[in-house]
């Protein structure tokens, strides 16, 4: 087979890294399913935004990152956390509002962060992460760490003012940040056609003099190839860039979604483009893994998730007397 016909990820990554990536995608899927089930069982009292169907963009984007590199995430951020190496038990514990959770039960689904892994946090405000990501990139430039920041955002966030201000600042100061748009077609119920003047969000990169690319966000190989190029561009001090990953969320926006703005046919069509079997098939075709080993990975992921839920369920609640702890570095008398 000629070298050029071999997919990028097969050329660029060791089999162990690719198997780990597939494992992370399964972990995300099982995490989200476990979260959904826990919600049904009344173990979670808040809402949640599931990323089922968007696993390739989360994991693919983080392939070239180390723990020194940063990410900012979104309200639909469980996948990004897992891709950046979060502990699943602590994630579930946060979900269940437990003291052992990433935010000691103070944050919940929309605020999971793990600074030790470079994860600066999901965000409950659409577009809240843009300037924070640019600030993290400014720190990296000033401190000379060589770190890159990936700023995940959705198609809806591209219409926030923070998007435009932040891309402009990143460009004029040539900062090492990659803006990864997970375009899943809808901001809650409003389609990108109805909300966004440009057909391609990546076209907006031109306005800020940065490279922009569009990829099939359900194709792990395509996402990784594009984002890796952007990360390399940032590390080479060439500045920011934007990658738009076209994807789809197979579940509703949140638990309140009655799915009245899209058709069953549309959802079914996207289910056929599920990123996980597509990536598994790619790895099997290139003999990175056997079909039996894929099934074993999936089973192992399910087991890990079950253990994580068990850990979270058995964890203690935060103490009510400490409800306002962490508002300030030192507690200020009320």
């Amino acid at each position: 087979m000629p070298e050029t016909n071999i997919p990028y990820v097969i050329r660029a990554y060791r089999p162990s890294a690719l198997k780990e990536a597939l494992m992370k995608m399964y972990l995300i899927r099982k995490f989200e399913e476990g979260a959904e089930e826990s919600y049904m069982r009344g173990l979670i009292h808040g809402t949640m935004h599931l990323s089922i169907g968007q696993e390739a963009s989360a994991v693919g984007s983080c392939m070239a990152l180390t723990d020194e590199d940063k990410i900012t995430s979104t309200h639909r951020g469980h996948g990004h956390c897992i891709a950046k190496g979060a502990d699943l038990g602590r994630m579930f514990a946060e979900f269940f509002g437990k003291e052992t959770g990433y935010c000691r039960g103070r944050g919940g689904s929309m605020h999971i962060a793990d600074p030790s892994k470079g994860n600066l946090g999901a965000n409950g405000i659409v577009g809240g992460g843009f300037p924070i990501a640019v600030g993290a990139a400014l720190s990296a430039k000033k401190l000379g760490t060589g770190a890159v920041t990936i700023c995940f955002f959705g198609d809806g966030a591209g219409n926030e003012g923070a998007f435009h201000e932040s891309l402009n600042i990143a460009a004029i100061w040539k900062l090492p940040v990659v803006f990864v748009c997970e375009n899943n077609g809808y901001g809650m119920s409003t389609s990108t056609e109805r909300s966004t003047a440009v057909k391609r969000i990546a076209d907006r990169a031109t306005s800020y003099s940065m490279p922009g690319a569009i990829v099939d966000g359900n194709d792990f190989n395509a996402v990784t190839e594009a984002v890796d190029a952007s990360v390399a561009w940032a590390r080479a001090r060439e500045g920011p860039s934007l990658v738009e990953a076209r994807t789809y969320r197979l579940r509703g926006h949140s638990k309140s979604d009655r799915n009245r703005y899209r058709t069953r046919e549309e959802i079914t069509q996207w289910m056929e483009r599920d990123p996980i079997p597509r990536f598994a098939d790619l790895l099997i075709a290139h003999k990175v893994i056997t079909r039996k080993a894929v099934r074993d990975l999936e089973d192992a992921a399910a087991k890990t998730i079950a253990e994580a839920i068990e850990f979270a369920s058995a964890s203690p609640d935060p103490r009510v007397e400490e409800a306002t702890k962490y508002v300030y570095a030192e507690r200020v008398p009320a």
Binding site: P131, I132, A133, V134, S139, K142, E165, S166, I169
Partner: peptide, 23 residues
């Protein structure tokens, strides 16, 4: 000097403060 971008500018300061700087 920042552009006339109060949200972006203040937010960049927040992000830099979260990652080791004192803006």
């Amino acid at each position: 000097d920042t552009p006339i971008s109060e949200l972006g500018g203040a937010g960049v300061a927040v992000g830099a403060a979260m990652t080791g700087m004192k803006p």
